[in-house]
């Protein structure tokens, strides 16, 4: 179970949070002017990386704030936590270590 450092409340157990999936997905500015495919890309398509994943979490049972987490989807190590609106931190792609299948 993850220990997540809420940028507002401090380190808390995973059960207090909710993961909102991939972050940094921009809503198309003018949806009416884009194709069905482009709209579907926004609504449905996901990067789903094996390794470094930029995602959003929300401290549901705490301060109820959303924030950004850079997490390794293989090792579950949290590489960075930052607030909404801040830029993606530059992080190396991890080597796929520690997968004890």
């Amino acid at each position: 179970m993850l220990l997540i450092e809420c940028p507002f409340c401090g380190p808390r157990a995973e059960v207090e949070f909710r993961c909102s999936g991939e972050g940094h997905i921009a809503r198309p500015e003018t949806p009416e002017n884009i194709s069905d495919e482009a709209w579907a890309d926004y609504v449905y398509m996901r990067t789903n990386p094996k390794g470094l994943h930029f995602e959003r979490w929300m401290h549901q049972h705490g301060c109820r704030r959303w924030f950004c987490v850079a997490r390794d989807t293989v090792t579950h190590k949290i590489r960075a936590i930052y607030k909404l609106g801040e830029a993606k931190p530059a992080l190396d792609e991890p080597k796929t270590e520690g997968e004890g299948a």
Binding site: R18, S20, M58, Q60, R64, R65, W66, L84
Partner: peptide, 9 residues
């Protein structure tokens, strides 16, 4: 939560 998510994000 739906509205909060849009407002905050």
């Amino acid at each position: 939560w739906w509205m909060e998510e849009w407002l905050q994000n």
